[in-house]
């Protein structure tokens, strides 16, 4: 229905990526990456991505580190954190600096994320 919205989801857990794709794949065009590095590559190849959702805790590069780099290169993209941790100071700081729009907790809440995506892309347009 809104397959013209391109979303990148970054998580080091294979099952998380699969489930995300399964649940959102019919509504949006979902791309996945299993690391921050991979995410940056995909961003470079796909200029149409408007939403990026990333896990927090990943090997090598944390979600916030990845977002910090990506935000500098693609300031128009909306970034989100989807994490198993609750709210913490790091995330609070990222929100204060407008690095991310907001954060979601695991396990994922489909309607909440979907409405936020639609909201964000709707505003963008």
């Amino acid at each position: 229905m809104n397959t013209d919205i391109n979303i990148l989801y970054v998580d080091d857990e294979f099952l998380n990526l699969q489930i995300f794709k399964f649940n959102f794949g019919k509504k949006f065009n979902v791309l996945v990456a299993d690391s921050g590095d991979e995410g940056l590559r995909i961003l470079a190849d796909n200029a149409s991505i408007s939403i990026v959702i990333s896990d927090m805790k990943m090997p090598n590069m944390s979600g916030l580190e990845f977002i910090e780099i990506a935000k500098r290169m693609y300031p128009s993209i909306c970034f989100y954190i989807l994490t198993g941790f609750g709210m913490n100071e790091e995330i609070q700081k990222a929100m204060d600096e407008k690095l991310i729009n907001r954060y979601f907790s695991k396990p994922l809440n489909l309607p909440l994320i979907e409405s936020e995506i639609l909201n964000a892309t709707g505003q963008n347009r």
Binding site: E13, N16, I19, F20, N23, K57, T83, G84, K106, P107
Partner: peptide
Amino acid sequence: HEINNPLNFIMG
């Protein structure tokens, strides 16, 4: 955090 991931699988 570790439990939240498998919960995410189940929820998904």
